[in-house]
């Protein structure tokens, strides 16, 4: 029982990280049709930014931890907005070029991060409580799991509220469904593009700081390793669907955890099989718009 609880809560924590990356990927693809392979770099940069502030102001303080979350989100948002504004903006509707540019940016930034912070993992510590465990049904759960889940739920609620209650949110939801009709109502949908990149980048940057606590380290490859699963999650959830991304994040991470433990480390294989099944039976994903 305690193993199941541990696996379940760790799975939820991992799912929360996937969601923080996948939410941006899904919104960006849904609105603009852009597959952003540089998204992992927003996460990595956020994680390093969080670490830089932690090592300067004392990693065990809660104030520092909160600051690192804010800074991680801000750095992710700025890098994402710049990526849209300087690179992607010129390439709308040119899908091959977009892939080339975002893949290139992803690779180049990893090299840049390696140049700045080195290739070895940098170990991360946080406030004492985060390093401790809490017993639930006999399972000793690391507290950082709860923190990751808590923040991801807040992010989900914040994005949902943004989409539902603001005019930009309305434009984004409409644009995901039918972008050209939005422009035909006299709306400059490109402003929403930059904003969606920034929102997605903020979530990823936040995810970077949390991931560094979850795994206990940050390295230039952190974002890329999460990005692969976030893409799978996005496809399973349905490109463009935020709710789909949330559901699929949790489902994929739980599947991965349980398969790893009970089926001899086959977690990644199980995820790929799940992807294949979804693609064969529901090609547009669980909640995706019809292709």
């Amino acid at each position: 029982m305690s193993t199941v609880v541990l696996l379940a809560i760790t799975g939820l924590g991992l799912g929360a990280l996937y969601f923080l990356v996948a939410s941006g990927l899904s919104l960006i693809y849904g609105l603009m049709g852009v597959l952003n392979f540089a998204h992992g770099s927003f996460l990595t940069l956020g994680a390093f930014a969080g670490w830089e502030i932690a090592r300067r102001t004392g990693a065990d303080s809660w104030v520092t931890f909160l600051l690192s979350l804010v800074l991680g989100a801000a750095v992710g948002a700025v890098m994402a907005a710049l990526t849209e504004f300087l690179l992607v903006r010129r390439l709308y509707e040119r899908h091959i070029e977009q892939v080339l540019v975002t893949v290139g940016l992803g690779l180049a930034t990893v090299a840049l991060f390696e140049g700045i912070w080195g290739t070895d993992p940098v170990f991360i510590t946080g406030p004492a409580w985060l390093e401790q465990t809490t017993s639930i049904a006999g399972a000793r759960i690391p507290n950082d799991r709860f923190m990751v889940i808590f923040v991801a739920v807040l992010v989900l609620l914040a994005i949902v509220a943004f989409l539902k209650f603001t005019r930009f949110g309305l434009i984004i939801r409409a644009g995901v469904e039918n972008r050209s009709m939005v422009t035909a109502l006299g709306i400059d949908v490109r402003k929403a593009f930059t904003l969606v990149f920034a929102v997605g980048g903020a979530a990823a940057g936040l995810g970077g700081v949390l991931a560094s606590h979850f795994f206990g380290y940050v390295s230039p490859l952190l974002g890329g390793s999460l990005l692969i699963f976030a893409f799978i999650v996005t496809v399973i959830g349905g490109l463009g669907s935020l709710t789909g991304a949330a559901i699929a994040s949790v489902a994929v991470a739980l599947l991965q955890q349980f398969a790893n433990f009970y089926a001899g480390g086959t977690g990644d294989l199980a995820v790929v099989l799940a992807l294949a099944v979804v693609l064969l039976t529901r090609p547009s994903g669980l909640l995706g718009k019809k292709a």
Binding site: I171, R173, A174, E177, M181, V182, T183, A184, L185, G186
Partner: peptide, 29 residues
């Protein structure tokens, strides 16, 4: 979007309402 804001209203073939938005949201947009 600039042409439309000059004062051109467009009612497209096949309506093109936003199916996932409410009637009020379609109008507000």
């Amino acid at each position: 979007h600039k042409i439309v804001t000059r004062g051109v209203g467009y009612v497209p073939e096949d309506r093109e309402v936003f199916a996932s938005l409410t009637v009020a949201e379609n109008l507000r947009l």
